Computed example of a mutant assay.
Amino acid sequence: MSWALARVGLVASILLLATSLAAGSFELGLPIACKPGLDCWVIRYADHAPDDGFADYACGRLGSNGHDGTDFGLRDARAMLEGVAVQAVAAGVVKAVRDGMPDQPADGNLAFDFKDRNCGNGVLISHADGWQTQYCHLHPGSLAVSPGENVLAGQRLGLVGMSGEANFPHVHLSLRHDGQSIDPFNDTPMNAACGTEGHPLWQPSLRSQLAYVGVPIVSVGLADHVPAHGEIVAGDAMNESLAPDRPLVAYLLAYGLATGDRIALEIAGPDGGKVATLDFQVDDDSPRLSRSGGRKAPTQGWPPGLYHVRATVSRGQTTWSLDGSRSLNER
């Protein structure tokens, strides 16, 4: 090997090492106290499209034009009311806070004018080496920190809410380095093309939990009626107990649906026998979609016990599914 080639190889190795060290110098914890895929989901990602369209880092459709961060969402507004902490992803100093803006209605309709305060109630934190994080849409009155306060990684900042431009309960996390928006899933700026290889900034223990899911199914359930979309978003679809003489209706709530996707809802009885199988085709691209269907009660009524529901979304050879169950008791 020539000296020139050896020198080039050495320089490349040094640059790679420097890049790896830089990438590993700032690691992120979760901005929300939850278990991804179980009681919270990544619903929207940063936009990497160069035009008026949208593409997340995996070249998927989870987000909207110009979206500059990552949205960690809860199942529904009822889960939000249980009180889910928003937490600092890394140690730093609180630079600014905002509180006092109301949550939007639980059914997901934007009723309160947020003007230019899309973030709603939020917290801005500065970290070492030019890093900065911003946390948006916190529940009013829940902020637990003040400007100038030092915070630790994992420290509670407030509670998940729906303030500002929020039609579902979530925390929006924006990450910046020297003022430039960075995607934490591959440590690239928003102007980098989707599919660009990079180093995830999440702590190693979180990376498998935060693996990309093209269609997050966040809610499945059984109701005694066909629930309205707003009921499902609010978490009110199962307010009434199941009864032997009432219908059994399965439903789902999912994000990132595309034209041509297939949705299947399956209901099984206490003995494992099939109660109903329903199939739907998605006719239009849908950032968020609910579907429901089921069966009327038989003449003799439904037998008591635990009923199961499975929701599946199929796109070509790829499928996503979520299971749920609910008890039906004798009157």
Rank of each mutant, 00 (worst) to 15 (best):
W202A: 01
A58N: 14
W302I: 08
E197Y: 00
L21T: 10
L242A: 03
P140L: 12
I43L: 15
Q132A: 14
G154P: 10
W302Y: 03
T19L: 13
A79R: 14
L110V: 14
P270Y: 00
G158E: 05
S219D: 12
A90N: 08
H48K: 01
E266I: 13
G235Q: 04
R98I: 14
R262Q: 15
G130M: 04
V11Y: 00
E231S: 12
L5P: 00
Y45M: 08
S290D: 10
G221L: 01
R156V: 09
P287G: 11
E165G: 02
M1Q: 12
S219T: 13
F72H: 07
G272S: 11
D56I: 03
S325F: 06
L242Y: 03
G69A: 08
A12Q: 13
D285C: 06
H67Q: 10
T196G: 04
R44A: 15
S292Y: 08
L201C: 06
P102E: 05
P304H: 06
R295Y: 00
A228G: 13
L201M: 14
R75D: 01
A311K: 08
R315P: 08
W302K: 00
D129G: 02
L5H: 13
G235H: 03
N65A: 13
L175W: 05
Y212I: 02
D99T: 10
S205P: 02
H229W: 07
Y307W: 09
K35R: 15
D187P: 05
P247I: 12
T196V: 01
S2F: 02
F112C: 04
G301S: 10
G179M: 07
Q203F: 02
M1L: 11
A18E: 11
H172S: 12
A192Y: 00
L265M: 01
